Amino acid sequence: MRVFVFSILSVCLLVSSLGAGCAERAENSGQTGRTDILPYRLAAGDQIRIMVYNEPGMSMTLMVSQGGSVSFPFIGKVRLAGRTLTQIEENIEQRLKGDYLRDPMVSVTIEHYRQFYITGEVESPNGYEYQPDLTIEQAIALAGGLTDRADEDDIQIRHPGRQLLKDIPATYPVYPGDTIIIGKSFF
């Protein structure tokens, strides 16, 4: 009987610790499901939707311009570039509160992400809309796959404004604005 009770307690503790670990990983991973990615920050080329609840005249879809700011009703200029969706929501809510609305509720969502680019030995080199949790392998699939002349071991990537990284594995994450270069095989 003691062995049976001990076994049940052991299983309960194991399940409890696994559940806590899963919950902790989910909490740390944010919206993307990956712990290695920082929160998504907007930049030129992203299209967002700002909704102010019960205020249809203040809800709109906007493209983040090169300047990175937009003019919003009643509050004027709102900086979007370099900010997370949560930061934008909080900023608009804070600026609308009091003078214009009693308790504004603002929601900001991404309608379309800015593009990443893939060139070299893929079937359809081009710019493609970024997707959360995208890897180089998935980007190659979006571009129609590798050509017969592609060198699978010669993958390079350049993050915007950074140095070219060489010999990147296919599981490497892709971010908006990245340029992926697939090299050509000599054989």
Rank of each mutant, 00 (worst) to 15 (best):
A170E: 10
A170M: 13
L14P: 09
N126Y: 07
R25I: 12
C12H: 06
R149C: 02
D36Q: 10
T109Y: 00
A20V: 14
V52N: 01
R158I: 15
F72L: 05
D151G: 01
L80E: 03
R102V: 10
P160V: 10
G144M: 06
Q115D: 14
P160I: 08
L80A: 05
G82V: 12
D133L: 08
K166V: 12
L62K: 03
R102S: 06
I136S: 03
E27C: 02
T32H: 00
R102M: 08
N91G: 01
Q156M: 12
L42S: 01
R49F: 02
V108H: 01
L96K: 01
G76M: 01
P73H: 00
N126C: 06
P132N: 01
G177K: 02
I75C: 02
I75T: 03
L85Q: 06
G21N: 14
S69V: 13
Y172Q: 14
G76F: 00
R41K: 15
G45L: 04
L42V: 02
D154H: 07
A43S: 15
G177T: 07
P39D: 02
Q87G: 05
L18V: 12
K184P: 02
A150N: 12
I182M: 03
P173G: 08
L80R: 07
I180L: 11
A44Y: 03
I50K: 01
V108G: 01
T171D: 13
I37Y: 09
K184H: 05
I8G: 04
D99S: 11
Q94G: 08
I92F: 00
E27F: 11
K166C: 03
F74Y: 10
L146E: 11
L165P: 01
V122Q: 02
G67M: 08
I118E: 06
I8R: 13
Y40T: 01
L42Q: 04
V3F: 10
N54S: 11
C22Q: 11
K166L: 05
E137K: 11
I180W: 05
G30K: 04
I48Q: 01
N54R: 13
I157E: 09
I50A: 00
A44N: 12
G33Q: 02
T86F: 00
Q87H: 02
E137P: 10
Q87R: 07
V108K: 06
F187T: 02
D103L: 10
G183P: 11
I168S: 09
G21Y: 14
S7Y: 04
E93L: 00
Y117Q: 12
Q115E: 14
I140C: 12
A44I: 06
E123K: 15
Q66H: 08
G177R: 03
K97V: 06
Q94L: 09
S71K: 09
N28C: 08
Q31K: 10
N91F: 11
N91V: 04
Q66N: 15
A143M: 07
I8F: 15
F74E: 08
A141I: 13
D36F: 10
T84V: 06
T35R: 14
E55M: 06
L165Y: 05
T147Q: 10
T32N: 07
V174E: 03
E24L: 13
G183Q: 11
P132S: 04
A141S: 14
L85T: 07
Y128N: 04
K77N: 14
E152N: 11
M63K: 13
F187W: 12
E55W: 00
R2W: 11
L80T: 04
V5S: 12
V5T: 14
E90Y: 08
V15G: 09
T61P: 01
